[in-house]
Simulated scan of single mutants.
Amino acid sequence: MAAFIAWVLVLAIAAYACAGGTDYGAGFWDLLAGGAERGRRPRWLIDHAMAPVWEANNVWLIFVLVIMWTGFPTMFQAVFSAMWLPLALAAVGLVLRGAGFALRKPTRRLAQRRIYGAVFAISSLLTPFFLGTVLGGIAAGRVKVGTTASADAWANGTSVLVGLLAVAATAFLGAVFLCSDALRYGADDLVDYFRLRALIAFAAVVVLALIGLPVTRNDAGYVRDGLTGGPGLLLIILAAVCGLATVLLLWRRSYGGSRYTSVASVALTVGAWGFAQRPYVLPTSLTVAEAAGAAHTLRWLVIVTAIAIVLVGPALVLLYRLATMGELEELTDADTRAAGVPGDNL
């Protein structure tokens, strides 16, 4: 049961990396869109594309946390004790990001829109970076039971590299999805705009991955060996093939299929990390079996997880499907009760 729950955790992390990562990537491009006039069209598309699903994507993060503290309490305690600072910064960024996105659209004052937009965009960059540094610190073996919080746990070469990879991967996903969204909304001028950015982001992912080979040689040797051999290597190769397929589809302007291949490339990479790290949840100090909670707790967790998959899974799939097909209607000012006031647009 512990091994099953561990793989459910990996799948949940992959789902959050793909679903939430796409939204983080959209926020990243919002940050780089330029000034109010220059960035007006890209930000308009980002608002419309994210609106139907951005809140639902955080369901995966909650799922990850519940599985961690219920199924692997020892791991949960060790990670949150050693990594409380980057995790707190990521949580603050998550809250500020949601508040900025929610408040920017109904606000009519230009100055306030800029403030909310900046909060949303900057948080979309910082949150995946800090989450990536946590994963990097775990992969490097810097988190053990009893480890006290320190900058070395997350401000090291491997952590920074994984943080940057997380940002680049989310930027890649966001740009790929926005290409298709631009086509769907009839914003033909933005299709090539985000197509170019998707190609640049993919190039950044490749460069960072190559840099990671020497960086992780001595710093995260166990996980690195797992990624360069066995099932981990196979999944990395498949992820690379899916990434290259995404580039080819973008080059040929086949934007519908590029969504699936880009998601597959990120999900397979997360799966490769899961294989590379086994049988440990904290390399190389805590195995899955050692970190597992009580047997009766795991049994109930399996039951609840199965029920959640049956009840929530189809609803999320339907939501994503309707969103990508443009079947969900946008909220109007009347729905949000946003009304003009004297001094609007100032």
Rank of each mutant, 00 (worst) to 15 (best):
Y280S: 11
T261V: 14
A245T: 10
E55F: 08
A334N: 06
P42Q: 06
G25W: 09
R337I: 04
R197T: 00
D188E: 15
E327Q: 15
A276K: 06
A187K: 15
A49R: 02
A2C: 02
L161W: 07
A323M: 03
R197D: 00
T22R: 01
L346I: 05
V247E: 01
T127N: 01
G132I: 03
G93V: 03
V302D: 04
V66M: 14
G212F: 13
G132Q: 09
L125C: 14
P342R: 11
A91P: 03
R109N: 11
G146L: 09
G221H: 14
V317L: 10
L238N: 01
A289W: 05
F177H: 11
T336A: 03
R97D: 11
F202T: 01
S81F: 08
T297P: 00
G221E: 14
T74F: 03
L233W: 02
G293R: 10
T297G: 06
G293D: 08
F120M: 12
V310M: 13
A88K: 01
G271I: 11
F101E: 13
L85N: 07
R195F: 00
C18G: 03
T284E: 15
R217D: 09
G313S: 01
A149I: 04
V167Y: 06
Y24K: 04
D192C: 06
S254A: 14
A36E: 12
A291Q: 02
F194T: 08
Q77K: 07
A78Q: 05
V143I: 14
P283W: 11
L250N: 02
W44N: 12
L210Q: 01
L249R: 06
L183W: 04
P42K: 05
S262L: 02
Y24W: 13
L346Q: 14
T324H: 15
R142F: 13
